[in-house]
Simulated scan of single mutants.
Amino acid sequence: MTTRNQGYFTEENSAEVVTGQIGPDTDPRLAEVMAAIVKHMHAAVKEIEPTQEEWLTAIKFLTETGHKSDDWRQEYILLSDILGVSMLVDAINNRKPSGASESTVLGPFHIPDAPELPMGANICLDGKGAPMLIKGRILNTKGEPISGAKIDVWQTNDDGFYDVQQKGIQPDFNLRGVFRTGSDGTYTFWGAKPRFYPIPDDGPVGKLLGNMGRHPFRPAHLHYIVSADGYEELVTHIFDPDDEYIGSDAVFGVKESLLAKFELIEDAEQIKAANQTGPYYEVVHDFVLAPES
């Protein structure tokens, strides 16, 4: 390994000296990434001018963040979420053609083996919460229905928890299901009206949120993964526009195009036609898939 003399370190040329030590045989992408990180990190430090104590506080925060992470909980992803980095990476990697539905973050509570159910099935297995009918169409960018589209859905219960967070309390696969569209591209299923819930805030990231005067809540939403042969997979949500946290999602996952009207149905004839015993909510939202690149 050869040494590289890039000059002596000063406050003014710090980034150039450090990036100058990157060897000529370094993987080009790694060299590009590290040069950008060093450049912007040094610029931030020069702007902030941290004290030694503040620098050590930052080191301790990163150490605590690592200690809080395990196979179940990734505190660094949570940090990425609350800084908007997760959503920015998602946006960069999911640029869509005009007319296609927008994506948002996957979230940590998807499981791959939810049961496939017939259209119109009820995914709310414990009967808690206000009944909600969810329906719409899966279309392509030409407005044509997509047959055989797979729709993987999941949501929280009325208490703001996913089933995997309450093993032994909620039934397995509560408020989860997989559906496939017919030739008309329509989908329909019953669930329960979701509610807002907090991201895990008992660790260093939660403490940071509090120190910044921010809350940990995500507004009420349903998760979707929509896929079909010949089309790009869509990972997205639909949100309740009337939720109190709709304008301040802790992980910045809300996009205007993903707002869906959660309409309360109180008309006696509609209630009867839906085989309900009382008022229920109805959400109608179409998804448009982009063709595979």
Rank of each mutant, 00 (worst) to 15 (best):
K207Q: 15
W72T: 10
G168F: 01
T2M: 01
P291L: 08
N157A: 09
H285Q: 14
A36C: 00
L264G: 02
T181W: 05
L139D: 05
T51M: 05
I59R: 13
H285Y: 14
F262I: 06
F179K: 03
R73F: 15
P118Q: 12
L125T: 01
Y231D: 04
G177M: 04
V17G: 00
W154D: 04
T277V: 11
A250F: 06
F9R: 06
Y8T: 11
S98C: 08
T188A: 14
E54A: 14
T10F: 00
K193Q: 14
E53T: 03
R95P: 01
W154S: 03
D172W: 02
K207R: 15
T19E: 02
D27R: 07
G129C: 13
Y224W: 14
K255A: 10
P216I: 10
T57K: 12
T277I: 10
G129L: 10
V283E: 09
G129R: 10
T104N: 11
G177L: 04
P241E: 04
A31P: 07
H67K: 14
F161A: 11
R214A: 14
E47Q: 12
F9G: 00
A91P: 02
E75M: 09
S14D: 00
E16L: 10
L88Y: 14
T3R: 06
E53Y: 00
T277C: 05
S257T: 14
T19Q: 08
I169G: 10
E16S: 13
E53W: 00
L133I: 01
I134A: 06
M132I: 12
T141G: 01
F252A: 12
N140A: 06
I271V: 13
N13R: 03
F262V: 05
H237F: 10
N93V: 01
A43W: 00
D249K: 03
F217L: 09
G253R: 06
A36I: 00
S103H: 11
G230F: 08
M1T: 07
G84A: 12
L78C: 03
E64T: 03
A36N: 01
G160E: 05
D70N: 15
R95K: 15
P28F: 08
G253S: 15
G148K: 08
L258T: 04
G20S: 02
M132V: 11
F61D: 11
P115A: 01
P112N: 09
Q270T: 07
G7E: 03
I59K: 13
V283I: 15
E53F: 02
E64W: 02
T51H: 07
A100K: 05
S69K: 06
G66N: 09
Q21T: 01
A121S: 15
M1I: 07
A121M: 12
N140R: 05
H110W: 07
Y8G: 09
V17H: 01
G120I: 11
E282Y: 06
Y162W: 13
D242E: 15
D25W: 00
A58P: 00
V288A: 08
G99T: 06
G7T: 02
A43N: 07
A273N: 14
Q165D: 09
F217G: 01
I146D: 03
Q74A: 12
N122K: 12
V178M: 00
G203C: 09
G185C: 03
